[in-house]
Design a binder for these strands. Sequence first.
DNA 1: CGCCGAGTTGAACTGAATCAAGAAACGTGG
DNA 2: CCACGTTTCTTGATTCAGTTCAACTCGGCG
Lengths: 187, 187
Amino acid sequence: MQQLFTHITNYHPLSTEAQNALHDCFEKLTLSKNEYLLNEGQVCRHLYFLEDGALRGFYNLDGKEVTHWFGFEQDFVTSFHSFITGRAAVENIQLLEGSILWAISKEQLAELFNRFHEIERLVRIAYEKYYIRLEERFVNAQFKTATERYENLLLQSPHILERVPLGHIASYLGISQETLSRIRSKL
Amino acid sequence: MQQLFTHITNYHPLSTEAQNALHDCFEKLTLSKNEYLLNEGQVCRHLYFLEDGALRGFYNLDGKEVTHWFGFEQDFVTSFHSFITGRAAVENIQLLEGSILWAISKEQLAELFNRFHEIERLVRIAYEKYYIRLEERFVNAQFKTATERYENLLLQSPHILERVPLGHIASYLGISQETLSRIRSKL
DNA sequence: CGCCGAGTTGAACTGAATCAAGAAACGTGG
DNA sequence: CCACGTTTCTTGATTCAGTTCAACTCGGCG
């Protein structure tokens, strides 16, 4: 759990009381490869911190699986739309590796917000970082070519390649597996 | 300014004290068509509420203007990356119509956060809505065809068409103006 | 009137998808 | 440790959505 606190401090330092309260709310979760953290149709009631391991979010489109995001160690993970709105998720979250996670429920988080202004601030700041990240991905998706997106991925997170099957990466980049294979062969 | 408060209440109700404090921080701004709210290279130091009018965010790519978002009445507007990080903006913000805006500086906002937990909460909640919106646009950009994206726009905000030149809409949708014209002619 | 920006239409081209077949790597049980 | 099936990755041929370049139309407006 130390990792969670170290990570959180990057966003915003917390008082000891707030840290203790957080400590009491998070629950440890150990899952193995290929297990599901969430199935489509369910409501995602928790926010997770991924201490170690890897997972992916994907949904089904015309019988095909479309992976649209990955989570790795030190990432906060949830099915955001479902978690915030309380509606059924359209996506699945599946483990790509055996992983250690820490879970907190939406209700517990709301109560922490009420008790600790500083925890709500922490989350506000985290949102800003995640928003900027998504904005960047959006611009890539909309205005860059397949090759540029792949090169960008190589620069920003080369480790992904050794840990995730090519098919998932292709769909994460919004291209077919064959195209990705061809792009790779030209480098 | 009433509009701002009515809009804000949709996110989260505020106490009278918080409302008064907000009231003191926002400054009215009236700009006419084609003026710039922000030029690339500048740091965007303000968050704006667009009471009435329309504007666009765009950047230059190989000598072409790429419009990647629009703002309309009741939208919060800023160059988010620049505003949050304090770095130079890569985008321009230009008025599409004569508009009325209310501006608050980053410093003032930070001070309001310190004084009023409830204002920071309001912003936290607003972030959630804007994040979900962006997520949806991202999925559209990555996994839908040009025609689907246009039809989606027709459903979600048909009013845009009468207020914004086609070229801007095309680039917002991530397609060329000619393609958009052809898509339209088939309906 | 003639110009100018906005939108349309046509023809050639291209990046990427699809369909189909193989090759390589991987894990599991015998 | 090998044999088998499964999953992962590559390669080729064809097709298609969307781009680019270029010409043309239409509606203002000085």
